[in-house]
Simulated assay, not measured.
Amino acid sequence: MSSDDFTPEPPRPGRPSGGGPEEIPDWVRQLEREIRLGPAARLRIWLGRHARGLRLGVGAVLVLALLAYLGAAGYRYVQRPADPPRAYPTVRPPAGIEATTSASPPPSAGPFDGTPASAFPEGAAGITLPAAKATGGFTAKQVSAALTKIRTALVTARLDRAFMTAKDRERLVRQFAPDARQHVREELSDAEFVSLATRLAPGARLLPDQPRVQGRVTYRATRDGQGFRVLRVTTNFVWAYAFQGPRVVPGDGVVVVHDTLVWEVPHPDDVRSRDNGLWVTDIRSYVANVDCAAIHKGLLDLGKGGDGKPVATPTPDADSLYDPDRSLDIPDTC
């Protein structure tokens, strides 16, 4: 377990949540791990005459279930209808113009049944953009263009299966501003890249079912630390993936990723052309029901059982892990 707490910082002006042991299925008794990006790995970008200070803080947190196997991997979900709802820490949405997921979930049965993800829309339908309005010197057209670019990057990072299985990250990296790309390549190591994007471990297989998606997009105009106008966009989504594997109880085979990203798009009149485009200034995440060995490499795979020796460990309410408003402050236990 982690000895230090990781509490998401609030946005700052000017900077780019019954029965005995015999009732608990084997996949609940798993370990999970938290990955954090230390201060030495935070981005410090100075862009010449029109430089902007950029800090990239990455916290990738992996969640624990009710019991864990020693030396094993991944949180596993189990639904216990008899248990009353439990309180868990939540976060307050950032200030600004926002939109939450609005599409309806598909009616058919599938691997997400019995989990909160069954009520989520499929794939990109779960990413609803807020109305584009003129704000802070940005025209409605500029706001719309920025939001569309971010949505495209999210679809590539989390939903594009060709990208998930490719070794080359450039399909995503090239969607950033030219002067941001090299820093994304250098500063996001394999273990940290999972906070930004989904890549599958060798041998991991998703079911044909599209991932389920639920969350929120919020934007506001502000100024960065150098005084330049930026459109600051916060995306907060839960992504649920259905992996191939045995399904005994609800949630078997479902891997959950919850990420919160802060993007900045500078006003084109304030910066050089190479600075114009997408920047990501803060990344925080946790994942659940994953294989620890894979996640150490920044890859997703379904958690696997261990030696069967249970270890009692505190855990949040399982359903809370599917809540976009759940705090990402979760102990390191992997």
Rank of each mutant, 00 (worst) to 15 (best):
residue 250 P to T: 02
residue 105 P to F: 14
residue 76 R to C: 11
residue 115 T to N: 01
residue 111 P to E: 02
residue 307 D to Q: 13
residue 246 P to E: 09
residue 172 L to E: 04
residue 219 Y to Q: 05
residue 185 R to P: 01
residue 196 L to A: 00
residue 245 G to V: 06
residue 74 G to E: 09
residue 255 V to S: 01
residue 51 A to K: 12
residue 274 R to H: 12
residue 10 P to H: 05
residue 150 I to T: 03
residue 117 A to E: 05
residue 49 R to C: 13
residue 30 Q to V: 11
residue 315 T to N: 13
residue 39 P to W: 11
residue 184 V to L: 08
residue 174 R to T: 13
residue 31 L to H: 13
residue 229 R to Y: 04
residue 133 K to H: 13
residue 90 T to D: 11
residue 54 L to F: 12
residue 226 Q to K: 15
residue 54 L to Q: 14
residue 271 V to C: 05
residue 19 G to R: 11
residue 334 C to H: 11
residue 10 P to S: 10
residue 69 Y to W: 15
residue 26 D to F: 08
residue 172 L to C: 08
residue 271 V to Q: 01
residue 153 A to S: 03
residue 301 D to Q: 10
residue 235 T to K: 14
residue 294 A to D: 15
residue 206 L to H: 07
residue 96 G to Q: 05
residue 94 P to D: 10
residue 166 A to N: 09
residue 90 T to K: 07
residue 50 H to G: 10
residue 103 A to L: 04
residue 221 A to C: 05
residue 38 G to M: 11
residue 30 Q to S: 14
residue 254 V to F: 02
residue 260 T to A: 09
residue 171 R to F: 15
residue 42 R to V: 10
residue 56 L to Q: 09
residue 271 V to H: 00
residue 209 D to P: 06
residue 284 R to M: 06
residue 83 D to P: 08
residue 190 D to C: 08
residue 294 A to M: 06
residue 158 R to T: 12
residue 135 T to H: 08
residue 304 K to Y: 15
residue 126 G to E: 02
residue 276 N to G: 09
residue 19 G to T: 05
residue 147 L to Q: 03
residue 311 V to A: 03
residue 229 R to L: 12
residue 297 K to P: 05
residue 121 P to F: 04
residue 224 D to A: 01
residue 96 G to F: 05
residue 271 V to T: 02
residue 107 P to D: 04
residue 110 G to Q: 09
residue 39 P to C: 12
residue 6 F to L: 15
residue 334 C to R: 15
residue 13 P to H: 14
residue 140 A to E: 03
residue 50 H to T: 15
residue 229 R to A: 02
residue 254 V to A: 03
residue 210 Q to C: 13
residue 261 L to W: 03
residue 115 T to I: 01
residue 99 A to Q: 03
residue 328 L to E: 05
residue 146 A to C: 10
residue 145 A to K: 05
residue 168 D to P: 03
residue 164 M to L: 03
residue 208 P to W: 08
residue 176 F to K: 07
residue 88 Y to K: 06
residue 318 A to P: 06
residue 284 R to E: 07
residue 55 R to D: 15
residue 304 K to G: 14
residue 228 F to Q: 02
residue 204 A to D: 00
residue 198 T to Q: 04
residue 200 L to F: 07
residue 166 A to F: 08
residue 175 Q to W: 04
residue 204 A to K: 00
residue 47 L to E: 15
residue 253 G to E: 04
residue 26 D to G: 13
residue 149 K to C: 09
residue 253 G to Q: 04
residue 208 P to I: 13
residue 65 A to D: 06
residue 175 Q to A: 11
residue 237 F to L: 06
residue 11 P to Y: 04
residue 115 T to V: 00
residue 180 A to D: 01
